[in-house]
Each structure stands twice: as C-alpha cells, then as structure tokens.
Amino acid sequence: MLSYILRRIVATLPVMAIVALFVFSLLYIAPGDPAVVIAGDQASPEDVERIRQSLGLDRPFLIQFGSWVWRILHGDLGTSIFTNLPVSTMIGQRLGPTLSLMIVTLLLTIVVAVPLGVVAAWKAGSLIDRVIMGFAVFGFSLPVFVVGYMLAYIFALELEWLPVQGYTPLAQGFWPWLENLILPAVALGCVYIALIARITRATMLEVLQQDYIRTARAKGLGQGGILFVHALKNAAVPIVTVIGIGIALLIGGAVVTESVFAIPGLGRLTIDAILRRDYPVIQGIVLLFSFVYVLVNLMIDVIYTLVDPRIRY
C-alpha cells in the first residue's frame, strides 16, 4: 500500500513539472517584453531595465526556469509586484476563506447529492425520481452568480436569516463562520450537487441490476441494507471519480462566488492579480490550484483501492 502511494506520488511529478513549465511560461506567452509588461504602462525605460536586472530576465530562459523552480522548491514563490509582499504570505492570508468555502461546499454536496441519487435510483421512474432529476437539470442550468444573487436576495435581504456577504474566520466561533458560508456554499454547490446526484443515480441503477443485489434480496436483507451496504459501496468508484473531477469545477466556481459574496479569498486575489497584471501572484495561485488538483486525484486513486479490492496496487 505504502509503495503504491509512493509510486503514485512519483507519477505525479512529471505532471507537476509540466504545470510548472506552463505557469512559468505565462509571462512569456503574454504579448510583449515581460519586463515592460511587469513594469506597467507608466514606467520609464530605466524602470524597465531595473526590473529586467532584478528579476534576472536577461538570463537564458531555461536558467531562469531552473532558478525559479529551485526557489519554489524552497518555498519561495516570489514577491508581488504590486504590494511587494511575498506571494506565499499573500496566498496564506487568503487561503482560509477559500478552503473553508470549498470544504463546506464539498460536504454539503456529498450529504445532499448522494442520498438524492440513491433515492432517485431506488424509486426510478416514480414521481420522486422525476422531481429529483428535474431539480438536477435546474441546478445544471443556472450560473453560480445568478443563484448567488437570488439566494442573497431571498434569504439575506428579504427574510434576513443569513448575512448578505462577508467572511468571519473560524477562530471567531463556529456559527459566525458557518453562517457566512451557507449561502455561498449552496450557490457554488448547485451545479456540483446536480452532477453528483445524476452520477449517483446512474451508477446505482446499474449496480441494482447486478446479480449480487438479487442474491442480497434472496438472503432476506432489508431495503436499507441492500441500498447502502451492498449497492452504494459498489457504485462508489465512479461517484468518487466525479467528485474528484468536480473539484476543478469548484475551483473555477469559487472565483465567481467569492466575488458575489465578497469573501476575501483566493478567488478575489486571483481576480485582483489578473487585473493588476501581478504575474508572480498569478503564477503562485495557478501553481497552488494545480497542486491541489493533482493531490485530490492522488487521494482518489488511493480511495479506489480502499473501496474495490479488485483494483490492485
């Protein structure tokens, strides 16, 4: 098992290397001289030259890349052009809200979507099934910002049950923290819930037709035991896969959601950095998101082997 995990980690190294190369090239793919780009519109030629020197942009590409990677491996993501703060510090300050939002969304999704999918599959063809799947189509079709503003209007402005926007760190108490995250999580989770519910229903339907489900019935097992002990775990591999792929969806969605609900997270930082052409910050964030995504997929590969003994490691 341990060697399997190690092998998987080693297998992710080339992926991370390619991602790093791509992220690093961002600056060069952008039109124009990187030094001019970084210096901004009002810089004098001396400023540009100073930046070129200080960033080592006059050295060959591969050497720049090498030293950049070397610094990253030592935890140095560079310095923001705009704020002059280390990028790692800036990311660190914004990590909490985004992480909170994503975890709450993920939990909400799993708790809501999987049981919905199971029930829909169990009652396939019935009214309940059609209502659930109808909601799923609805959830798919609505963009995050529309759902976000609608929710904020209904539950915050009209009913005044929840705060309109903002973020409170977990350190200031669980409820204040959660209170601020409920609406963003529902808005962000909508598409995700729809997706997972549909996948759960489809895989469960397939599993429920298998011979071993008939065996379970022949043993006299009750409906609950059949659904959750004998069927759900068998359906888990595709469901877990989609949950993992969906993390990418969450990352993209978080950027929008944080804007709508004014959450000071990485999403906001990303938008700000892009608007200010703060390349070191953009590079740092993209690198972090890619790393998280690769890590999540690694975890999913490990979960596979825990769920299904036929997958060998």
Binding site: Q210, D211, Y212, R214, T215, A216, R217, A218, K219, G220, L221, H230, K233, N234, V307, D308, P309, R310
Partner: peptide, 20 residues
Amino acid sequence: QGAAMSMIFQNPRAALNPIR
C-alpha cells in the same frame, strides 16, 4: 427469504458481491 426458503443462481461469480 433466505431463512425458510433460499436460492442459488447461475453464474455464481456475478451472484456474489465483488467487493465484499
């Protein structure tokens, strides 16, 4: 079911839960 009356099936490999 399974107590007073039980059943065995064709294709035994498919009739057993593969991950249990």
